[in-house]
Design a protein around this nucleic acid. Sequence first.
DNA 1: CGGCCCATACCAAGAAATGGGGAGAGACGT
DNA 2: ACGTCTCTCCCCATTTCTTGGTATGGGCCG
Lengths: 250, 250
Amino acid sequence: MRLALVELLGDSILTASSIDDLHEALARAAGDMGFDRFALSLEIGCGADSGASLLVHDYPASWADVYIGFNLAATDPVRRAAERSVLGFGWQNILDLVPMTDMERTTFETGRRHGLVDGFTVPRHLPGDVIGSCSFVTGLGKSLPHAMLIVAEMLGAMAIASARRLSGWAGRPGHAKLTDRQRDCVLWAARGKTDWEISRILGISHETVIQHLKDARERYDTHKRASLILYALYDGLISFADIFRWRIRH
Amino acid sequence: MRLALVELLGDSILTASSIDDLHEALARAAGDMGFDRFALSLEIGCGADSGASLLVHDYPASWADVYIGFNLAATDPVRRAAERSVLGFGWQNILDLVPMTDMERTTFETGRRHGLVDGFTVPRHLPGDVIGSCSFVTGLGKSLPHAMLIVAEMLGAMAIASARRLSGWAGRPGHAKLTDRQRDCVLWAARGKTDWEISRILGISHETVIQHLKDARERYDTHKRASLILYALYDGLISFADIFRWRIRH
DNA sequence: CGGCCCATACCAAGAAATGGGGAGAGACGT
DNA sequence: ACGTCTCTCCCCATTTCTTGGTATGGGCCG
């Protein structure tokens, strides 16, 4: 019974007491589900603060060397798709989530030649805290175990939660918090307005807008308008919905 | 068989063609799992002003009125825990995730008096995009259907994905495509580099970087560097991990 | 009360981005 | 062979952003 599999394997993943434990538990889980390999990736503590990254996998060493050596993560479509999806996805369906550049296609094909033919990736994120994904991969001459994808979805999520716990990251120490007016200015800046336009919109002087954005940049310890916007967006102070003003119907 | 339940109910949730459809599917799912009620919340924007949100639920009207009227979301421990958890959690375990203030305890107790005694909440987030949670709730004299929590975890995630799609967030067609080089420049711009710094990093002339960004802006029909970055981010051409990762390594 | 935060307003100088031109080399497909 | 696209490079003028200051008034809290 598949659900018993979730509970059994899930327990060993959630109670792992070390990264090595987790490696072992995930390797067994991947095998039991009918996959050949796994990879768990965690980016911890992104945003204005620096954090750490964690990578646990049993990919071929040849591929791992190439991947890390040439920083292929930068052109890995799987990783990027993982940040645009709420649910797990098969690698065949990546194009439904994100467009692929030529470089990314190359990275994907290179992986395939190293034996990473098809896979199922489970994304799980906490804004301002962690960006995680867990992939289960099949090799040559094998197709994804479709009946097991639901199990993979659960186990992948558990693996990410477990890795986050093991990494000892207690969350971001302190959000840079903006005042209401600062946030207003950042929001309108994100909407593409100039300082002068913002001043007309908010009914305050041009110099005041400059001052608010100056203060906001300082709080985020950055010198760039674009970075300020990105930090505020990542922290959830503003959102794409705010920026593009899309209306959600009820 | 419980996993068959996931597949059956999950299908009706994922294929819902309207919010009303989704409401109906979730109500049936909650009942079939042994819960009494459900609430699905999609948050777009943490700021109070235009922060669009989607709320689908079958909570008692009396509670909904109080919750919205007094803006209890601001002191709802369930909501706050949902922003700090990777996996679904039972309301009994909220204290493992976040400390609770007196006000939050009051909100929690008030909900309990309105018949929301215990619950299981599934969080699911996409940084810069959506903060979602789906709760399944039991009433008086009933305990959580523990065997069904895994099913709830899956169905809750599906409900969030479905609601996100229905709200018009997913499936935005017509991506402007950038060339590889344009994307490189946008990415480094998102990392807070000036045009001149980008030229040194990519080993090309300052003028060329300016040209690439000029072309990229034109493709997205914008006149602002920040907007260009946001569009590329929204379209999935670059990601938060792309933007922030390099910091982690150095 | 004095200190702190917030919002408001102003000035000046330098750095950076933007918009308007133009141009050549190489790849690719029809 | 021709057009299209990409990547590369350059010039100029103008706008916008960034940084360094200063300053006033209001509100809140110990």
